[in-house]
């Protein structure tokens, strides 16, 4: 289970809206306990996918490394990543599966006509052959 606090959730949704109709991407930082993951901070990242298209994203590895250092400094962990699906539902695509890491939460935000639709979260297995949905709790928009 993953819960997202109000402040990071606003960053995530605002980033998804600002990037529309392109996909946004970012990194979630926070803490883990027996009840699951708690996202305390979100980092909006640059989509460095080399082609100008609206259906792909790629996180700059240097931004990941910086987020990891920030998490260490604040006593957080990198819990996972988020990206948007403009004018599509929130599902985990074959492209997502192929390019994601196991262990992390992957929140997919559906944005329709520039407005928030819904979000779901997925975790990839070690072989990158399947992704299971996990319970996601986020604030009302």
């Amino acid at each position: 289970m993953i819960r997202i606090e109000t402040a990071p959730w606003k960053i995530m949704v605002d980033h998804a809206k600002a990037c529309f109709p392109r996909e946004c991407c970012g990194i979630m930082l926070g803490t883990k306990d027996a009840t699951g993951n708690l996202v305390r901070e979100a980092v909006a990242c640059t989509n460095i996918f080399p082609e100008a298209r609206n259906d792909r994203f790629e996180i700059d590895p240097k931004e990941y490394a910086a987020a990891e250092r920030k998490a260490d400094a604040q006593g957080f962990e990198v819990l996972g990543f988020f990206h948007s699906h403009p004018d599509e539902d929130s599902y985990f695509s074959a492209t997502d599966l192929k390019h994601s890491w196991p262990w992390y939460s992957n929140v997919v935000i559906s944005i329709r006509s520039g407005e928030f639709n819904r979000a779901r979260s997925f975790i990839v297995n070690l072989d990158q052959t399947a992704a299971d949905e996990e319970q996601l709790d986020y604030p009302e928009n």
Partner: peptide
């Protein structure tokens, strides 16, 4: 030396 996740994807 840093091990960094390669994270990408998209609805395509």
């Amino acid at each position: 030396i840093t091990i960094v996740p390669s994270i990408a994807g998209g609805r395509a």
